[in-house]
Amino acid sequence: MIVRSGPHGATIAGCAALLLWAFLALLARLAQPLPPLLLTGLAFAVGGTLGLVVVAARGRLGALRQSPLVWLHGVGGLAGYHALYFAALALAPPVEANLLNYTWPLLIVLLSAPIRGLPLGPRRLAGVGLGALGAVLLLAGGMQGGFGGGAPLGYALALAAGLTWALYSVLAGTPRLAGVPTEAVAGFCLAAAALGLLGHALFEAPAAWPGAGPWLAVLLLGTGPVGAAFFLWDVGMKRGDPRLLGTLAYAVPVASTLLLATFGGGHLSPAMLLATALVVGGGILAATARREAAG
């Protein structure tokens, strides 16, 4: 779960996180009828506990002793993003909220220039533009009559969620935070779990005891999309190429929709196939730009 690698390997680690996040929607659906905050708290508890076991086995528990700024960044990023995202889904139509939330890949690419000093060329911007177009095409297909006028707070929270995750990701590689060991993510996950469970106790009705299927989904969520993915993403953002990862992140909603269509009883549409082609094309452009910059 803890990865040590150079820039190329770190970028691959970030890509592995994106692959795991593609399974988030499918596993969350399989975890129903657990309410969102309870599901978030349980999944973070699984991921944080597994991470803590690995950190303890490596004799690295001291990595959890970090400054308040580091804890604010880590817990604020993980818990803050999910709180804003789930609140947006509760207050606005889910497809529109998800579309606004997925401004975070574009923001990662754009913020990498002023915050990290990484150059942005026309090929890279064209790549992220194709990826964004693919995500918009895919997600907008489920919108009912466009953005409604009755959920401005939900839309604002969705945008805030996207900005929160982009800032969390890009700031992880700044001089103040780049030296924070990835092992500290285990502590952030456990703190986020506590906040999620507290939120469930305060704001959600008590949940009925689910069957074996939802519990298996929770374990898989905590092992992958709400567990190992955060450790891999931390490595990718700190030592990899955030511009390329931001572009490739548009593959997440496409892959997630394809998985739901394949295993969740849906169907593949021409819009899904076109969105896939756009995201793949954008990824190729971004990867080519990376090689040119390296040369």
Rank of each mutant, 00 (worst) to 15 (best):
G146R: 11
A126F: 13
L177H: 07
P206H: 01
A97H: 13
A97M: 14
A151T: 12
Y81L: 12
L260A: 14
L198D: 02
G74K: 03
A43S: 15
P119Q: 05
F147V: 05
W71A: 04
L216T: 13
P152C: 03
T40E: 02
G213E: 13
V185Y: 01
G236D: 05
V254K: 01
P152K: 05
A217Q: 06
E96R: 14
W21Y: 13
C15N: 05
C15E: 11
A255R: 06
L163S: 03
A293E: 15
F263V: 13
R29Y: 10
G236H: 05
V95C: 00
G121F: 09
G146N: 11
I12S: 08
L91A: 03
T182D: 11
L167I: 04
A201L: 14
A22E: 03
A228F: 12
T174L: 05
G150K: 02
Q32V: 02
A161T: 09
A212P: 03
L245Q: 10
A22I: 11
P253L: 05
Y250G: 06
A293P: 03
V218P: 13
P210R: 01
L27F: 14
A178H: 07
A192H: 03
P152I: 07
G162Y: 06
A92T: 01
A294Q: 15
L219S: 10
V218E: 07
G146L: 10
A194E: 08
V53H: 10
T11V: 05
P214Q: 07
G213R: 15
G141N: 04
R58P: 00
F86Y: 14
V180P: 08
K238A: 04
A192C: 09
A25M: 03
W71F: 10
F23C: 14
A151F: 05
C189V: 00
T103Y: 00
A261H: 12
G117Y: 00
G9K: 06
A16R: 04
V280W: 11
G211I: 03
A97R: 12
M272C: 02
L216G: 12
V136E: 02
L111W: 04
P93L: 07
G222R: 02
R291W: 13
F231P: 09
H73S: 07
A172L: 15
A275T: 12
A277S: 14
L118R: 15
L167K: 01
L259P: 07
H8W: 13
P175E: 09
I12V: 15
G187T: 04
L100V: 06
G246Y: 01
A217H: 08
E96P: 07
G9Y: 00
R176A: 13
G264W: 09
G224H: 02
A212D: 03
L268R: 11
T247C: 12
P68L: 07
Q66C: 08
L268Q: 05
L30M: 14
W209C: 06
P214V: 15
A57Q: 14
V170C: 05
A277M: 12
L137W: 06
G6A: 08
L198E: 02
P181S: 03
I115F: 00
A228L: 15
H267S: 15
L24W: 09
A17Q: 11
V279E: 07
L245G: 02
G14Y: 02
A191Q: 03
L273P: 00
G141V: 08
A28D: 10
V235N: 00
V75N: 11
A92Q: 05
G131K: 11
A90T: 00
W71L: 12
